[in-house]
Design a protein around this nucleic acid. Structure first.
Lengths: 123, 123
DNA sequence: ATTTTTTGCTTGCAAAATGCAAGTTAGAAA
DNA sequence: TTTCTAACTTGCATTTTGCAAGCAAAAAAT
């Protein structure tokens, strides 16, 4: 169970995703990553223990879930829940800030800014 | 100088403000906090060494600046720069997420959601 | 003018989070 | 049946955060 510093919605949001990696993982899911190895392949190079721990935390916080393992897959893929997908607007705002205020940042793929929370967490 | 993990604007934004306190400090500035003691008085209870270090980091990252000390004040107040104020939309999106997806969070004061980047960093 | 208080920090050390490298396990492929 | 690969776990070093105390300069009180 997450311990909240106060009732402030911003501080509370940060108590859940305010670390170095959670939003980077969710960003990758928005643009298509679904498996442990997809996340390991991220350009940011997350350590395996941190990744495993974050996936568990995000799952128990209800932001992601594991889908049923399909034929030929070792385990089920990870998917955003409605609660996790609801972070998309905040991620897009952060990305716009990074693009506009920091020098020489990458331009995110169009599907990132086109993503809508409602397109995720479908059965 | 901030070290960026990659060129991703989201990861880079988090390399600057992706810790437990930076966005909480900026949130407080959006609703009126300007002095060291204002930040110490935040409900979240930041430690003094962390606060001092964050203020320096945010200043050297160009998100906040110190204004000229006025009559009767020990030191100059802190103010958001245009670069720091540009984070307001991301903060508002995070706050909306917290309000909508987490149980029993506080309702931010109206001036928080009414805040516009352009209203800050005026001479 | 001198003491007292407030503001804005710094310092030292403990605790927690992160990072790195190596090892493990269960199912898929050969 | 051996090999491979995806998905982790474990141990330990490094870094970040937190707590408590201390301190200096300016402001306020006497």
């Amino acid at each position: 169970m997450t311990k909240f510093r106060t009732g402030c919605p911003i501080a509370s949001a940060l108590d859940i995703v305010g670390d170095k990696w959670s939003l980077v993982i969710i960003r990758s899911m928005v643009v298509g990553a679904t498996s442990y190895s997809d996340f390991l392949a991220m350009a940011e190079k997350i350590a395996t223990n941190i990744l495993a721990e974050r996936l568990h935390r995000l799952e128990s916080a209800g932001l992601i879930r594991q889908t049923q393992a399909r034929q030929g897959a070792t385990r089920g893929a990870y998917a955003l829940t409605a609660k996790g997908a609801a972070l998309i607007p905040a991620l897009q705002a952060l990305a716009r800030w990074g693009e506009e205020e920091l020098p020489e940042r990458w331009t995110p793929p169009e599907r990132f800014y086109a993503a809508r929370p409602v397109d995720f967490d479908k059965p």
